[in-house]
Amino acid sequence: MDTDNRQITANTTLYNLKNVSKHFTRGREVIPIFDNLDMSIKRGEFLAIMGPSGSGKTTLLNMLGGIDQPTSGEIWFEDQRIDQFSENALARWRAANIGFIFQFYNLMPMLSAARNVELPLLLTSLSKKRRKQSVEAALELVDLKDRAEHKPREMSGGQQQRVAIARAIVSDPKLLLCDEPTGDIDRKTSNEILTMLQYLNKDYGKTIVMVTHDFEAAKYAARIIHLDKGRFIEQGDS
């Protein structure tokens, strides 16, 4: 398990999960997902989370992103306990620190690529001009500058996911949380997307936590953990 946790100094640890349990209740039935889970994620890490369907990967990612709460335990991000944040504080915290990438892109269908990318910037106090610059830079990074005015439905799955990546990085967050980002995309395009994530990790120092089913995809990560029956099985560094 997470034996190296204690050796990591506070300023290189981004996340620290202590004794985290998560149950769902469906009527009277209690469905345990995790019990007393401990884990930490280092700053600048590219972590892949694998595991069978229903093992709780998405649930874990949601808790890291502050959109789901543990039933008990503590989730530390830097020096803050985010599981104790109010809903609004969490929203602000997400806007400032996290970029999300979803399996089905989840772009706004009525907005152009550029406007989709601009969306998170509405949560900042950046001027119109600065916003435009940031959007252009982000689209440039994912190599979609020529598609700025296109609507999502006018683009391929791979292109839409690149727009989603641009949206995730436009406000320069520390961390990217990706839930099966290549789950709906063919092999070749997947590799492009994953190379892009790797590049963001290496050259821009983004911490990336990626949930995936796909071993090929997981290879792009520096560390892989397997989640099964509420436990982690670490695969070691690659």
């Binding site: 809903e87 609004n88 929203a91 602000r92 997400r94 989840n106 969306l119 998170p120 949560l123």
Partner: peptide, 15 residues
């Protein structure tokens, strides 16, 4: 529904 959830995820407050 999904779009609203995404906006909340990005950090738009419920208010």
């Amino acid at each position: 529904t999904a779009e609203i959830a995404v906006m909340k995820t990005l950090g738009f407050t419920s208010g």
